[in-house]
Design a protein around this nucleic acid. Structure first.
Length: 661
DNA sequence: TTTAGGG
DNA sequence: CCCTAAA
């Protein structure tokens, strides 16, 4: 029956008649169980973390009068020296920028502003990449420095502060700050102060406050100013802690991420609000991916939340309510508009990145270019904690992870039209950055500075390394046997591919620069935490200027993630076995854990592989695929094409026969 | 929701 | 990668 249907659909034949498929729903369930859920911490959260930290720095230092207050806590002033020394080794370019440089203390979101100001006031040449480098470098320093002291306090606080999740969210939101200097709200200030202790300036709560309120609030109208820095400051939440909450109850904890989407609009989308606290504990990859994407591209508000249940995305939550899993998949369709791109902003002021252009017409030469970088993305982190972990330990865990990453040193990458601009000597003009049209094509990325970490895990693994040969554990910490976090569900045997080795796990596969660190030394509660930078190149991709300039049509393109050789290998192997035309199965078989690879992606990749195999090696681009693999691609492709043809023939004959009878 | 294909 | 017709 199934086969029949497939044939009707023109699918390809099978080498081995497929066992009757489970019902569609059953399959769905299976597939969802299998790990589509995304339990990882949203990159945004990290961003928030970083931003939050930086914000602290920013808030506390510029004001001399307040600096003293903050000094001890955030290592301002002299303590800075110390910190810098520590970092010195890691950040080669930083020394010079040291103290006097304002840039040295920028926190990401404001980096933008600073740059901006600098430009407008001095009329000097636009700060170049190096300037940014300084800022970022110091940024990392800052983060390094603020580590423990603040956290300890936070921890204490948090222990008595484990409210409901929603409560937390709301609370966090209240510290949400708008762009610019709004008058601090008395209450908010107070609240924040309490938490911040001596952090100095309280964060204001303005529109954000409102927006975070309850579902009914809609504030699409003015996404403009409020949005831009909300994200950045939100995390501040008084504790330079990410807006990550860890509810006490048995529910998987949710990590609410008010990413740019939401924040940028500074509001809660009516539709999404409902979902905000919905019971559904998990989210699928698509949803997350979409969220990320939207963040990445700075798209209008869409999703109100990122709900992460388990912190372990590797785990297949079999026992969890399945229904909910399905919902996410096409959640985007629940939105008022079918395509995300339809959510474009019309307000130019909303741009959170890129260049706020100048009119090319009257600035032929060295005219200033204004840049505003709203936020940077931080690599993906995976955190795994036991239910019994305290908020405090969670905070520490996250902070440690972030700190470790930042401590590793960063450098800035400039992306134009999605491509990296490597030539540091090019001028903005030459690059085209100074042109209006490019304003929405400029992006920055934070990248780990020079290789210093386990190169073995780098993206360039042995070309012939089969996935199955790389059982390298995820950079995730796995709890010792016996200590099984509640969130770890047994993996259904059926979900295990025959050749489990084929499984490509996005995690280690796409984590080239494994910044690995363990947590928990500070807290026995934290089972583990390991940071796993998301992707290769774009790992720390920055939110490029939101591309909204072109009307309200915003292109929501996913980040490009080139297939690694290992992935190709797995794909080839799966296709050899399953044939073409069964991409879903291929996905489940070999890429079940690669959350960012959809079956469509796999199909597309196969398509390009076939193409690649057919062209001359000289014409190929990107990471070279071993010829051996390409040969297999052609072979398999030929074979399955033939099979398909045969099947079709048979089918035709059958039809004819039936017809005659 | 999946496939298949064009863009 | 995206988009979308078809099934």
């Amino acid at each position: 029956m199934v086969l029949q249907k497939r044939l009707d659909y023109g699918f390809n034949g099978y080498q081995v008649p497929p066992t009757p498929r489970a019902t569609r729903s059953a399959r769905k369930r299976r597939s969802f169980q299998k790990g589509n859920e995304e339990n990882q911490m949203c990159a945004f959260d990290l961003l928030a973390i970083v931003a939050g930290k930086l914000l602290f720095e920013k808030e506390s230092t510029p004001n001399s009068s307040k600096t003293s207050t903050n000094k001890d806590q955030f290592a301002a002033g002299s303590s800075n020296v110390k910190i810098e020394c520590q970092v010195e080794e890691k950040l080669s370019k930083v020394e010079a920028s040291a103290q006097e440089s304002t840039a040295g203390r920028l926190f990401v979101p404001d980096l933008v502003t600073q740059v901006h100001e600098q430009n407008s006031s001095s009329r000097g040449p636009l700060c170049n990449q190096r300037d940014l480098n300084l800022g970022l470098a110091s940024l990392s320093k800052t983060c390094d420095s603020m580590d423990s002291p603040g956290l300890e306090k936070l921890d204490d606080k948090s222990k008595s502060d484990r409210g409901t999740f929603s409560g937390k969210i709301r609370k966090s939101s209240s510290t949400f700050s708008g762009f610019g200097d709004h008058k601090p709200d008395e209450q908010a200030s107070k609240l924040v102060k309490d938490e911040l202790n001596k952090s100095g300036k309280a964060v204001n709560n303005t529109a954000s406050d409102i927006c975070s309120a309850e579902d009914t609030v809609i504030c699409d109208e003015k996404p403009a100013l409020v949005n831009s820095h909300c994200i950045a400051k939100l995390p501040l939440c008084g504790n330079n802690i990410p807006n990550v909450s860890y509810p006490e109850n048995r529910d998987p904890f949710n990590v609410v991420s008010r990413d740019d989407d939401e924040n940028s609009s500074g509001c809660t989308h009516p539709n999404s609000t409902r979902k905000l606290f919905r019971p559904a504990p998990r989210i699928g990859d698509r949803r997350i991916r979409k969220i990320w994407a939207s963040k990445y591209w700075k798209v209008p508000p869409k999703l109100k939340d990122v709900t992460l249940s388990n912190v372990d995305d590797n785990v297949k939550p079999v026992s969890c309510k399945r229904k909910n899993y399905y919902k996410y998949q096409r959640s985007e369709r629940l939105y008022p508009f079918k395509k995300r791109r339809h959510f474009g902003y019309s307000l130019p002021s909303n741009s959170d990145g890129g260049i706020s252009g100048q009119n090319p017409s009257f600035q032929p030469r060295d005219s200033p270019v204004k840049l505003r970088i709203k936020s940077f993305r931080v690599p993906e982190l995976f955190i795994e904690l036991p239910e019994s972990a305290t908020i405090g330990s969670l905070k520490r865990a996250v902070m440690e992870a972030v700190t470790a990453i930042l401590g590793g040193g960063l450098r800035v990458g400039v992306l134009l039209q999605g491509k990296k601009v490597r030539d540091d000597d090019k001028t903005l003009l030459q690059t085209g950055i100074s042109q209006n049209g490019q304003s929405d094509a400029l992006g920055f990325s934070l990248e780990p500075s020079p290789p210093q970490i386990s190169p073995s895990l780098g993206p360039r693994r042995s070309p012939f390394l089969l996935p199955c040969d790389t059982p390298q554990p995820l950079n995730r910490y796995h709890p010792p046997p016996g200590v099984i976090p509640h969130n770890i569900c047994a993996t259904s045997p059926e979900t295990q591919p025959a050749t489990s080795g084929n499984l490509i796990d996005s995690d280690h596969d796409s984590a080239p620069s494994p910044v690995e660190m363990s947590v928990g030394k500070s807290s026995s509660n934290s089972k583990a935490l390991v940071a796993v930078p998301a992707v290769n190149l774009e790992s720390l991709a920055v939110i490029p200027g939101n591309r909204k300039s072109k009307g309200s049509e915003i292109a929501q393109r996913r980040i490009r993630r080139p297939f690694s050789v290992a992935e190709v290998e797995a794909l080839v192997q799966a296709v050899e076995k399953l044939g073409t035309g069964r991409w879903r199965d291929v996905k489940l078989r070999a890429f079940d854990n690669a959350k960012h690879r959809t079956y469509v992606d796999l199909k597309d990749k196969w398509k390009t592989l076939v193409h690649t195999a057919r062209i001359s090696p000289q014409q190929r681009r990107g990471e070279p695929v071993p010829q051996e693999l390409l040969d297999r691609v052609l072979t398999a492709h030929a074979y399955w094409s033939q099979q398909q043809a045969k099947q079709q023939l048979k089918q035709q004959q059958q039809d004819t026969r039936l017809f005659l009878c």
